[in-house]
């Protein structure tokens, strides 16, 4: 137990010190770390829907988009609105949550694979609307996107400027890092608490056998809706942070491939298992950069030119990873302990 405590303290210290170390190497790496955290956050949000409740959602990026656009519209010169973060972030989460419920209510009685296609269609519809709501009345500014979005500002603390605390310079990205870390801890806590809660167990029951769950007295429809709405809210929060960090949003950032990428993180890591999902998200964030720095030079050395672009290779690896995971480790690389138990029982039976 005490060894575990020491471990936790060490990890916490390492996480706290990370941006300061990274800043020494280059602030760009802090930005990369921030995006990685954002994607872990997103995949944990999706984990509630896909991993726990077993609702295959191919359009998760729609909620991320709703959150991002909410922030962009309420805190930018576009409508000349500059609301504070404590107003926008909840509004964004709320909008995303409503969008989730709106999508969920009519479609949740559909079977899993139909639901997947409908969510996919929904994700595309949201993107197409964002891309086209610039005429005849300009709401989203269309494909040009929204620029000069306000960053996060808490009281007098502007998260874009560099500040000096305790003799250490904290750059803008480094400050965002701590906010994102805080949010990440929150979503991890929610995920962990849910896992063993009444609702969490109801979700698992639905995932495994909906009819049996219904027979056991679970109000499947409401419980599923709750999963959808909750996952969507987290997507909305992540979107808001994305808009604040980047200062620019456009529909291009919310394409279907983003949804698939987030889904791949959840599936590959281990649906339902928080630590598995985190590992999956880190792995998939890490692979492309790894390929970038190894494949390119290696090919140039061997063939004298670039034969396969790392970006293409990355997609091939993603696709193959999805196929192979389903084939050989359908519960993911780090499956939920519950799954493990089930598999062992299966062998015994």
């Amino acid at each position: 137990m005490s060894r575990k405590t020491i471990g936790i303290v060490l990890v916490a210290l390492a996480l706290l010190a990370l941006p300061l170390v990274l800043t020494q190497v280059g602030t760009a790496w802090v930005r990369i770390a921030n995006l990685a955290i954002l994607f872990i956050f997103l995949s944990l949000g999706l984990n509630i829907v896909v991993g726990m409740a077993g609702l295959l959602d191919f359009g998760y990026v729609a909620f991320y988009a709703v959150g991002a656009y909410t922030w962009a519209l309420l805190a930018s010169p576009h409508f000349n609105l500059h609301l504070p973060f404590w107003a926008i972030l909840p509004i964004g989460a709320l909008f995303a949550c409503v969008a989730g419920a709106l999508l969920g209510a009519p479609t949740l009685r559909l079977r899993g694979d139909y639901l997947a296609i409908v969510t996919l269609g929904f994700g595309e519809i949201v993107r197409i609307f964002m891309n086209n709501l610039s005429a005849p009345f300009n709401v989203t500014n269309g494909p040009k996107g929204i620029t000069r979005i306000d960053g996060l500002a808490v009281g007098g603390l502007d998260f874009r400027a560099t500040d000096r605390f305790l003799g250490i310079d904290f750059t803008g990205p480094a400050k965002y890092y701590y906010v994102l870390l805080l949010l990440l801890l929150f979503v991890i806590a929610v995920n962990l608490r849910l896992q063993n809660s009444r609702i969490g167990r109801a979700w698992v029951a639905i995932r495994e056998d909906e009819i049996a769950a219904k027979a056991a007295g679970i109000d499947t429809r409401n419980v599923k809706l709750l999963a959808f709405a909750m996952g969507a809210s987290f997507g909305g929060i992540a979107g808001g942070m994305f808009a604040a960090m980047q200062g620019f949003v456009s529909p291009e950032s919310f394409v279907l491939h983003e949804s698939i990428m987030i889904l791949a993180m959840v599936v590959l890591g281990g649906m339902g298992n928080v630590w598995g999902v985190i590992a999956g998200a880190l792995l998939l964030s890490f692979v492309p950069e790894f390929l970038r720095y190894t494949v390119e030079p290696a090919q140039k050395m061997l063939f004298g030119r670039l034969l396969v672009e790392p970006e293409v290779l990355r997609m091939l690896v993603f696709g193959a990873a999805l196929v192979l995971t389903m084939r050989f480790r359908p519960a993911g690389l780090w499956p939920e302990s519950w799954h493990k138990r089930e598999m062992r029982e299966g062998e015994a039976a």
């Binding site: 990370l18 990274l22 790496w29 990369i32 770390a33 995006l35 990685a36 954002l38 994607f39 291009e252 950032s253 394409v255 491939h257 983003e258 990428m261 880190l282 998939l284 964030s285 890490f286 692979v287 492309p288 950069e289 790894f290 970038r292 970006e311 990355r314 997609m315």
Partner: peptide, 9 residues
Amino acid sequence: LSLSVAAAV
């Protein structure tokens, strides 16, 4: 595919 984000480590 714009997830070339992370990989800080």
